[in-house]
């Protein structure tokens, strides 16, 4: 049986790991490779590295980092941040990334999803969506959650699916950083309408939250950052807990 995945997310700025709490206010949380290895040893199923530097030099530093991660870490990892065109995807996959995550660029130019799927295969294309509940329902946001769009979460996720995305990484901005659980209702709606895996993100605070994302939200994977980075939840204990709760875990 296919196992549910636990994915720590590492935000990278100038080659170092950082984590935004509710998208603002950064605290340092260590060396990206040491941290990634530690998570892998604890039983993380995958890693996500997000480049939050926008500068040209920052991008070069990040590409070099991706090469080092690929040499040292023996589980799959996804990279994201600043990916706008096919050449960015090519550069990161060549450096050794297994998948790329695209966000704002996909909303601005949805054909990018088709292009990635055609050139490299759907399995490398993770479409990340930041969304928030508004009076009009769940709306997608751009630029790390700073810019609201007219796009509906469910309509956009389905379009990304149909264009050839391999996975949807859904972050609820309402839940992110609040630590009161994932957006399980929205997750369950996504799971019932999409034919590709859904990664839950935003809201992890306690171990039960992961269980609920799998049992109520029907997510295929759950992603978190600060609860892991600051040692509030250990991945090893989390996996033991989930196994006891009857969830298929590696």
């Amino acid at each position: 049986m296919l196992a549910k995945r636990i994915i720590p997310c590492l935000d990278i700025k100038d080659g170092q790991t950082v984590k935004g709490v509710n998208f603002v206010g950064l605290r340092s949380a260590g060396d990206p490779i040491e941290l990634g290895k530690a998570y892998s040893d604890q039983g993380a199923d995958e890693l996500v590295y997000l480049d939050i530097t926008a500068s040209h030099e920052g991008r070069k530093t990040f590409t070099e980092l991706v090469g080092r991660i690929a040499r040292e870490i023996n589980i799959p990892f996804t990279v994201g941040g600043g990916i706008n065109e096919l050449s960015d995807v090519d550069r990161l996959l060549n450096a050794g990334a297994d998948k790329v995550s695209i966000n704002s660029a996909a909303i601005r130019r949805p054909e990018l999803i088709d292009e990635i799927a055609r050139h490299f295969g759907s399995q490398v294309c993770v479409v990340a969506i930041d969304a928030k509940q508004t009076a009009q329902g769940w709306r997608c946001f751009l630029n790390g959650g700073r810019l609201e769009t007219e796009r509906d979460l469910f309509v956009w996720a389905k379009e990304a699916n149909d264009r050839g995305a391999g996975e949807i990484l859904f972050t609820s901005m309402d839940h992110d950083g609040v630590k009161e659980g994932f957006a399980n209702e929205a997750l369950a709606s996504l799971a019932s309408t999409l034919s590709i895996p859904v990664i839950a993100s935003g809201g992890a605070g306690r171990m039960e939250h992961f269980r609920d994302a799998f049992t109520e939200g029907h997510a295929d994977a759950a992603l978190a950052a600060s609860v892991f980075h600051f040692g509030e939840i250990s991945i090893k204990e989390l996996k033991e807990y989930l196994r006891k709760e009857g969830i298929c875990i590696r």
């Binding site: 049986m1 296919l2 196992a3 759907s122 399995q123 391999g166 019932s192 034919s195 895996p197």
Partner: peptide
């Protein structure tokens, strides 16, 4: 079954 997605992607025994 709806939960069996294609491709299979992830850890299986």
């Amino acid at each position: 079954r709806r939960e069996d997605k294609v491709p299979q992607m992830g850890w299986n025994s």
